[in-house]
Design a protein around this nucleic acid. Structure first.
Length: 473
RNA sequence: GUCCCGUUCGUCUAGAGGUUAGGACACUGGCCUUUCACGCCGGUAACAGGAGUUCAAUUCUCCUACGGGACGCCA
């Protein structure tokens, strides 16, 4: 039997990091076993459904490379099928009409809570022979088994048992005639041939009810795997309030999709001492059965570290589009892609994010360098550097070739002529060329910048120093 | 409140009835060095508490504490 899994988000907002993790685990486990992934939008609550949300979820999945093999299907498109099943249950007396108003139910729950009971429907309408009045509004409730228990072998949680008397008769069809989530899921999972349900642990308590429904309908019960939740830094379930931002904001912040996936897969799952995984490795190695049962806390430091490794390990060709994207955000446009690919290797092990990389390469593309960073200027732009710097400028200007070796020779010759150490020359040059105290190797920096910009920035550096010297006299 | 689940360094995790309780992030000392990084070597740091089973428990059982989830005509 081939594996069929589904990711079933409700379209009420963007795809956040917790949802992404569920989608990822679904995707990886299914790939590992050569199955089929299905995306099904759980939009049975029309009120709360937003079309933009569906788009946002899709976009998030696309970015992470988690596109489903089938779908998106919309649960609302199957309403009639859901209702037919409800009718079938009604006829078989496995369901009944309940006429209790919301007020009555609220009051009942309040009373139960007050006397220390678990709030749940007491089944008062289950024995009703007829409607209290001909046009009384009603919901359809499932007549659940009262004795015994539901037991299933959860792929993550192990054996789970729930006594039937802990449960109540859940609503299958609302008073407005629309099917509820619990009915829809069971019918759709069955119709779509889903044989493994991977979802968050917050659904654990729905599972026994759904199993009861499967059994009442004499359908095969799928396997279940309930993932421990991902918590925010404060230890509570992720929500809009604590950092459950759209996964797409990670792209904005310069994270690679593969790094985000890598980070998420290590929350609850491990493979020996390995920390860095390519997407391919994850697909080969991951198994939902190996996932642990305790919740993890989101930690951005580790994500950052993993991202830096994915940047280092990437091919420049695979980074260039993200770099262009980030450069645009800081108003650097129309850069030559080929040139970018050539310079990227110099920045890969210096950038933890693509945002950082964009900042670090920006000195190569701007016409006007910003003011020198005060601390860099103070530390390295010393008056003593005037002569070596202007001499270097001259020699670079007349250097016959423009390659790393020739540039190095010019530097060495200036060093010899003035009997100074490399730092004394390299750092002032770096500040003059980049306005900062950090950059790739100085020969590489000079080479990448090109002769024209190098010479003019060095000249500007000399002038800066001369003015400083004049001012201190 | 009721039901369910969880608890190994600050964080993510490995681990087995007997281990110097391993790795990673973060922090930190050093090396490398033209800067920043990368890399390398080292350091600090954990089995929530209490009973029981056992020659032996952090590992098995129970209780407590703490944390989380669920208790909707939401999904």
């Amino acid at each position: 039997m081939t594996l069929r899994t589904r990711f079933a988000p409700s379209p009420t907002g963007f795809l956040h990091i917790g949802g992404a993790r569920t989608a990822l685990f679904c995707h990886l486990h299914t790939r590992h076993y050569g199955g089929t992934t299905i995306l099904r939008v759980e939009d049975t609550d029309i009120e709360r459904t937003k079309q933009e949300a569906v788009e946002a979820i899709l976009e998030g999945m696309r970015w992470l490379g988690l596109e489903p093999d089938e779908g998106p299907y919309y649960q609302s498109a199957n309403s009639q099928k859901h209702l037919d099943i409800a009718d079938q249950l009604l006829i078989a007396e496995q369901a009944y009409r309940c006429y209790c108003s919301k007020e009555v139910l609220d009051q009942m729950r309040d009373e139960q809570r007050a006397s220390g009971l678990k709030p749940r429907y007491d089944g008062r309408c289950s024995k009703l022979k007829s409607a209290p009045s001909p046009d009384a509004p009603f919901v359809i409730r499932f007549r659940r088994p009262k004795v015994g228990e539901v037991i299933w072998q959860d792929k993550i949680q192990g054996e789970v048992r729930v006594r039937n008397d802990e449960l109540d008769d859940l609503i299958l069809v609302r008073s407005d005639g629309t099917p509820t989530y619990n009915l829809a899921v069971v019918v759709d999972d069955h119709n779509m041939g889903i044989n493994l349900v991977i979802r968050g642990e917050d659904h654990l308590s729905n599972t026994p009810r759904q199993i009861q429904l499967f059994e009442a309908l004499a359908w095969d019960v799928p396997d279940y795997a309930h993932m421990p939740l991902l918590h925010g830094e404060d230890g509570a379930k992720l929500s809009k309030r604590h950092g459950a931002v759209s996964v797409l904001s990670f792209r904005e912040e310069g994270f690679l999709a593969s790094a985000v996936n890598n980070y998420l897969v290590r929350l609850g799952w491990s493979h020996g001492d390995q920390e860095i995984f390519t997407t391919k490795e994850m697909e080969e190695l991951f198994d939902i059965c190996e996932v642990g049962r305790s919740a993890a806390i989101f930690n951005s430091d580790k994500l950052l570290w993993i991202n830096s490794h994915h940047i280092m390990d990437a091919q420049p060709e695979d980074l260039v589009d993200e770099l262009i994207y980030q450069l645009k955000l800081i108003n650097i446009e129309d850069v030559d892609k080929k040139r970018l690919i050539e310079i990227i290797p110099e920045f890969q092990e210096r950038s933890k994010t693509m945002v950082e990389m964009a900042q670090k390469v920006s000195f190569l593309f701007v016409d006007e360098l910003p003011e020198y960073e005060p601390s860099a200027a103070k530390k390295h732009m010393k008056i003593a550097a005037i002569d070596p710097l202007s001499e270097l400028t001259k020699r670079l200007e007349s250097c016959p070739e423009w390659d790393i070796d020739s540039i190095e020779k010019v530097f060495k010759s200036v060093l010899d002529a003035y009997e100074i150490k490399m730092v004394k020359l390299a750092q002032p040059v770096r500040v003059a060329l980049t306005a900062t105290a950090t950059s790739p190797g100085i020969y590489e920096t000079v080479f990448m910048l090109g002769r024209l910009k190098t010479i003019s920035r060095l000249q500007a550096g000399v002038i800066f120093l001369e003015e400083k010297a004049a001012a201190t006299e």
